[in-house]
Write a protein that binds this DNA or RNA. Structure first.
Lengths: 236, 236
DNA sequence: CAGTGGTCTAGACCACTGA
DNA sequence: CAGTGGTCTAGACCACTGA
């Protein structure tokens, strides 16, 4: 790596911010201090600090100085929704009701399943999400116990499996497929007419190449929207 | 607006790029030329051009000069789908049929519209996407002519507006809302029963803070899936 | 090999704003 | 009102690369 000087200055400050050595809200050295430290002109430190400000890592205020920015809120892209947090966030009570729990091996006759999970033991969970007392979504989930062994001991009648996984099992990759379907088989659980349009969300998550979970959720169309926001990928 | 000089230079070049006066691939004046034109130092024009390069509007090449960038293919997460490429990609013939075209001002009574588009002139386009000869989606689209002035001159009866925008107008932010609905009003255009479940995709895109387009697409549920793949957000 | 952009210097004046 | 960042100048040396 042959970095230019302003890239090096930027990089060192950025590393200190990301490592926590420079805490959010703390004050950075003023430009003249950095000029002395790096033995360079003010334009050079200014370029480094301006780039950090543009990237949102630093707030610059006249007369006051430069400060480590508080982390921004909307950095996530199409987040894996934490239904509980989302529903509480819009002021409704959230509930999860476990309908079925089973342990089995992955079924080689279902290529989708064995591709994700290998041949290990699976925890299979079926349940209903409620928002404000009304059914919001029916969920069928498989958890790969090789990737998340702790899941076997969790009592999912009190905790929704998605929230538990998000909290305890780090993931690196996810794929979400979204389609519109009729409620049909899920209509009884969701308490809607069988022809009601529903959002079918099918998600697989991995940590590296190891599958963690496969989930199929059927949302009542009139009561749930998926929103994805995204901006430019932050380049260094 | 009290712009600094480098902001003014940047703004004027950007306007020429976005209006099409400077076509993708064409060469910009060299820095010394811009120094003369704006009677300023090289650092100032360099700052303007570097910002345009960072924003992806301009490619700078040593010895060769600065060029208007071809719009980028975003390495995006939930990409804005280019329907034409997608449908051709699965071996079906793609078609787009324009049903209505109109020019109007944004309607202050629709806060969604004026929030995105300001108060400028809008191009309103309604059309149908076909896959393999069958209707796939009905589309209603608004284009902010302030952000994409060249759109006014395009014959969208031959080109789908989404494909044209992706190719010609760079964007930086997008928000996609996805819901399940009944075909209802679109059922005639889509040639399905009014109760058929459909995927409603509503997308807004921006360049910086300026809205570019607002589009509402109704997909026949049985013939279209949205797939989103993502890994960790790449930090710089 | 000459023209281009990348980087950097050592200054300068200024607007802003918190102590 | 003094310290800070924002901007700008008028140079300089350099690496790269296409004609």
């Amino acid at each position: 790596m042959n970095l230019t000087l302003h890239e090096r200055i930027r990089g060192e400050i950025e590393a200190d911010i990301l490592s926590g050595a420079l805490a959010p809200g703390s004050r950075l050295p003023v430009e003249h201090e950095l000029m002395k430290r790096y033995d360079c002109s003010r334009m050079t430190v200014n370029k480094a600090l301006s780039a950090l400000a543009l990237a949102g890592l630093v707030d610059r205020r006249k007369r006051a100085g430069s400060f480590v920015a508080r982390p921004r809120v909307h950095s996530m892209v199409l987040d894996i929704p934490d239904l509980e947090a989302e529903i509480s966030g819009r002021g409704q009570t959230y509930g999860y009701e476990l309908r079925r729990r089973g342990l089995r091996s992955s079924n080689p006759a279902r290529p989708q399943e064995s591709a994700l999970m290998g041949s290990g033991r699976l925890l299979e969970l079926e349940g209903i999400h409620f928002a404000g007392g009304a059914p919001l979504a029916a969920e069928v989930r498989l958890i790969n116990l090789a990737a998340a062994p702790a899941a076997e001991l969790v009592d999912f009648s009190e905790t929704s499996p998605g929230a538990w996984l998000l909290k305890h099992i780090p993931w690196t990759e996810a794929e979400t497929r979204i389609a519109a379907v009729s409620a049909e088989a899920a209509s009884r659980d969701l308490n809607v007419h069988p022809t009601t349009p529903c959002l079918l969300v099918e998600r697989r998550t991995w940590r590296g190449t190891e599958g963690i979970t496969l989930v199929r959720q059927t949302f009542v169309g009139s009561s749930y929207d998926l929103v994805a926001r995204f901006g430019p990928t932050r380049t260094g």
